[in-house]
Every structure is written in structure tokens, then in C-alpha cells.
């Protein structure tokens, strides 16, 4: 599992105050919002955009456009990595 994925787990648990979740409980491929994944709610989606801005400098104004990136921890990590790679190239 990538360092970025592990790091993201830490940010999500801390910033969303998921007191009943242990990092080992989060599967990188499990849905973040579906009932059979982390079961995050809609305000949690806003918190994810705050994490992207605070730790990775990525500004998102519309969570609706983030549907694919917010699907799972793995897709979110891929989105961040892609964004960071684009910044290096630029």
C-alpha cells in the first residue's frame, strides 16, 4: 500500500473525527460513502475537500465533480498523485 494512501487514512480519521475507525479497518478499495464502506455522510464530503486544500494544496469548489475521485481511498490517492505530478511538470 502506498505511503500516500496511509497518510490519507490518517488525515481522514483525524479531520473527520472517525473515533470508531482504526486505520487497518479502511480498505483502499472500499467505497468511502456507501453504507458498506466507510459510510461517510454529505458534510464529510466537504471535509474531504478541506483535507485536499489543507494538506495537498488542491482547491475543489464542487464535490459533485469529485464523484470518481471520492469513490475510495485508492481513487482519492490517485487523484492527488496525478495532481502533484501535473504540478511538477508545470
Amino acid at each position: 500500500m502506498s505511503t500516500l494512501t496511509e497518510e490519507l487514512k490518517g488525515h481522514i480519521i483525524q479531520e473527520l473525527n472517525l473515533v470508531d475507525i482504526h486505520p487497518a479497518d479502511i480498505s483502499p478499495d472500499a467505497p468511502l460513502f456507501d453504507y458498506d464502506g466507510l459510510g461517510l455522510d454529505s458534510i464529510d464530503a466537504l471535509e474531504l475537500t478541506v483535507i485536499l486544500s489543507k494538506y495537498y494544496g488542491i482547491k475543489v469548489t464542487d464535490p459533485a465533480q469529485m464523484k470518481q475521485a471520492f469513490y475510495s481511498l485508492a481513487t482519492l490517492a490517485a487523484f492527488i498523485a496525478e495532481h502533484q505530478a501535473a504540478e511538477v511538470v508545470a
Binding site: L18, I21, A30, Y35, G37, L38, G39
Partner: peptide, 15 residues
Amino acid sequence: RRVLACRRPARQQAT
């Protein structure tokens, strides 16, 4: 199935 699939206890109870 929906309720039993919930991994977080509080979410499971609410569902």
C-alpha cells in the same frame, strides 16, 4: 444486507 454491511457501529444502528 444493507444494515449488516455497515462497518461503523453508529452508522449501522442509525441505518
